[in-house]
Amino acid sequence: MKKASQEQLERLFQFTNQHFVDYYDVQLELVDHLANAIEEQWQENPEKDFETALQEEFKKFGVFGFLEVVEARQIAMQKRYYQLMWKEAKEFLKLPKVFMTAACFMIIFTMITTIPNGIFILAAFLLPLIVVFFSTLISKRKKEKAILKNNNRKPYLLESLILQAGQVGSYIGFPIQVFIFIPDHLMSNFWVGIIYGALLTGFGLVFHITLFLLPRKRDEILREAYPELKWQQV
């Protein structure tokens, strides 16, 4: 049976690239699928041109091309990413890390309820933290992009999520927004202290997990999600 050559497989990778498949794991699956389908066509007509066969197979994906496949994969991997986040977060609700969580909550609560203008002092601390968050994110992405370029491949979807800190950056304005909506007379209220203390502690945890903990475990996470990595360099 006639098989797709190495050059033809490379052409298939390039083809998926051209059709907006930006993740290596999705590319791998589609390349194998297209190659199988083309080889099947060759069984009936061994002389059939590779490009013609490829276009015929691509049409079978429908008007949206590979988009639906990519989207479904994104949803699946996002879910996996959130599961990983939750697994890490649970550690902060158990001994011994729960002491850190409780201390963080108590500091915020005390600042809001007992220190005059404590909420503004908190806000003043938050702003530089946000700047640190974005600058760390950007520098990490630059570094990783350079590595991918060296390896000559697209990122794995989960790898891309880890790089973008699970896109939590888009929610980063939320803690600041909350300040804006608290009426002045509630600024040092007990319940505001409780709710805001819990919210800010939660946000702190999310940023710590997405920005530091998960990237640190990147290799381990990727090897578990992508068994093929045993053949490749991460």
């Binding site: 496949v69 989207e71 879910k79």
Partner: peptide, 23 residues
Amino acid sequence: ITEGALYPALHKLEAEGLLEVEM
């Protein structure tokens, strides 16, 4: 079964923990 329906379904089942993958 069209390709545009099969892979999203497979990925969904994988995300739900019903399928696992071997390369």
